[in-house]
């Protein structure tokens, strides 16, 4: 009897500490969000979204920044997803177990943890200078694509590995070639999992500032990008720039821009999660 009571109290202590840990994390997030909203909400209006940056905080807007961010993210995904998925297919379907492939796998694991500024310096050296792309949207997107590539490869590999081998065997036994198995079985069935990787990659890429600063994305741009070679700016850079100004008006602008950035991230994630759940229900739920 005493033992049961003891066990029960131990149980509730554990429950309370877990709850406490969760509350601390949520509280911090709440403080951040509330503070940003208090500072920035009054600045947020249609004019803020449709105006270019200005020397006067009242007139300044984030048009070039949010458009730049949207272009940048779209291009990043366009480069990184095909490459990352193809690499994952290579590892899961074609690669034999040898020292070269083991080394590659270890490298990709390590690359996922490399600080983003290093990718920025790589982008500066490779894309901006050596390949002469300049401080362009293209150079920025390629740098970001390198940065998120390991995330996409790792999650896509997990998605592919989750497909039961019995289903692949069935296709092979019907006379499917390996490329037919990849096209008709592997890709459709791993699609929801690959989308998860894309969500993670998007969320990482949209908030990254350091690599963009390293490749020299501009902070003051009063035009919209008109092509791949156009100079550009992005929301995190605009925020960084405004926060470092002395005037209080710019600080409010920065807070408002953070609200926009958070909203874009949430919208992108929500869209990708809905898409993933739709496909998950359609395909993957069957497999369990």
């Amino acid at each position: 009897m005493a033992r049961t009571v003891h066990r029960k109290s131990a149980e509730s202590v554990f429950f309370l500490s877990a709850l406490l840990a969760l509350s601390v994390a949520l509280l911090m997030l709440a403080v951040l969000v509330v503070e940003v909203f208090v500072d920035g909400f009054s600045q947020l209006d249609w004019q803020f979204l449709t105006h270019f940056p200005s020397r006067n905080p009242e007139d300044a807007g984030i048009l070039s920044a949010w458009v730049g961010s949207v272009y940048l993210i779209t291009l990043t995904v366009a480069f990184a997803v095909p490459l990352g998925v193809a690499a994952a297919i290579y590892f899961e379907e074609y690669a034999r177990k040898n020292w070269f492939n083991t080394l590659m796998e270890m490298n990709i694991g390590t690359l996922a943890g490399v600080p983003s500024i290093i990718y920025g310096l790589l982008g500066l050296g490779l894309f901006v200078r050596t390949l002469n792309m300049g401080r362009s949207l293209l150079a920025g997107a390629l740098t970001m694509a390198l940065l998120v590539l390991p995330i996409i490869i790792i999650t896509a590999r997990e998605a592919i590995r989750a497909i039961p081998s019995s289903v692949q065997d069935a296709a092979f036994a019907l006379g499917a070639t390996r490329s037919q198995v990849i096209r008709t079985i592997i890709l459709p069935l791993s699609f929801p999992g690959i989308l998860t990787g894309i969500i993670l990659a998007l969320s990482r890429a949209i908030g990254e500032t350091a690599p963009l600063i390293a490749i020299g994305a501009l902070t003051y741009i009063a035009f919209l990008p008109d092509g791949l070679s156009s100079p550009f700016t992005a929301l995190p850079i605009q925020i960084f720039n405004w926060v470092s100004r002395p005037q209080a008006g710019f600080h409010s602008n920065a807070a408002a821009a953070i609200i926009v950035l958070l909203t874009i991230t949430l919208l992108l994630n929500a869209f990708a999660i809905l898409l993933r759940n739709y496909f998950y229900r359609r395909i993957h739920a069957h497999l369990s």
Binding site: D169, A170, A173, I283
Partner: peptide, 14 residues
């Protein structure tokens, strides 16, 4: 294609 196979556990495609 000429020699078909059925497995131990039913493995229909989803």
């Amino acid at each position: 294609r000429r020699i078909g196979m059925v497995f131990q556990k039913p493995n229909p495609f989803p």
